[in-house]
């Protein structure tokens, strides 16, 4: 009963539903009607698609940086010892990770729309309507809002594990708060920062939901292009090629980041 063979059902499952679908992406991106072609990749070189790729990387990067800048102080506050009720606050920060991101994004969309809550408050104050939605700013806002907890948690975990005596030693040796932060705390928290950056950058790069709800179809990202190929244009070949490019970027980023600092140095999410 306690044997390797217990894993066989999973191996069969993984072969059919994990490995085979990925091979299908590779196949469809290179073959059309059984003939080898690079047409799908050539098509991606058109300005429209390259611009969408650059826009995706740009927006995902900006959101990652904003998340980091907002999350690091929060993680520091939560990990400091004099903070009361920090378990409850941490739970509240992490709780939205378990809530449907579609609904949470919709909640902001209904606040920010042209006839939404914020505009009706502004209207009551005789301030002219503001167009919040349907631009890069709204999409970045949505990304930050959705993925923020993924940045807080790994940084918090790492900060909690830092040996207090190292920080005290730094003070004893005459370093002030800023130097201690720069030379001791920040370097020691890097694994958490890197995990957090990956956890935010990846979903932000590949989203198509946030752009659809907050960008109103005006901001086209790489995820939207893939979605379009499979739901409307029905060009599986091109969709597969774009997915391949996306996967290569994801794997490239992952291996680059994990080389710089190992993922399992305590920065993990679980």
């Amino acid at each position: 009963m306690y044997r390797k063979s217990l894993a066989y059902p999973y191996l069969i499952w993984a072969a059919i539903f994990i490995a085979a679908p990925l091979l299908l992406i590779v196949y469809f991106s290179f073959f059309k009607d059984g003939v080898f072609t690079l047409h799908n990749y050539q098509k991606f070189l058109e300005d429209y698609y390259i611009e969408a790729l650059i826009r995706s990387i740009h927006l995902a990067f900006v959101s990652t940086v904003i998340c980091l800048v907002m999350a690091y102080p929060l993680a520091m506050i939560l990990s400091s010892r004099q903070m009361t009720n920090k378990e409850i606050i941490l739970l509240l920060v992490v709780l939205p990770m378990w809530m449907n991101s579609l609904l949470r994004t919709y909640a902001w969309a209904s606040l920010l729309e042209n006839n939404g809550v914020i505009n009706s408050i502004l209207n009551a104050l005789n301030v002219p309507k503001v167009q919040f939605l349907y631009g890069n700013g709204a999409v970045i806002f949505g990304m930050v809002y959705n993925f923020f907890p993924f940045m807080v948690l790994p940084i918090y975990n790492v900060l909690c594990k830092i040996d207090r005596s190292l920080v005290e030693a730094s003070y004893d040796l005459g370093a002030n708060k800023i130097t201690t932060f720069r030379r001791v705390i920040l370097p020691l928290s890097m694994p958490g920062v890197i995990t957090g950056m990956i956890m935010v950058f990846m979903p932000a790069l590949t989203t198509f939901l946030i752009t659809r709800l907050l960008g109103g179809g005006k901001v086209i990202l790489i995820g939207n292009i893939i979605e379009e190929q499979f739901t409307r244009t029905r060009d599986m070949g091109f969709g597969s090629a774009v997915s391949m490019i996306l996967m290569l970027i994801v794997l490239g980023t992952l291996s680059f980041m994990s080389k710089k600092d190992s993922l399992d140095k305590g920065g993990g999410l679980f």
Binding site: P203, T206, I226, M236, S243
Partner: peptide, 13 residues
């Protein structure tokens, strides 16, 4: 892998 890639790869399968 991104959700969207899991989604479309299973769809193709």
């Amino acid at each position: 892998s991104p959700d969207i890639v899991i989604g479309i790869s299973l769809m193709m399968l």
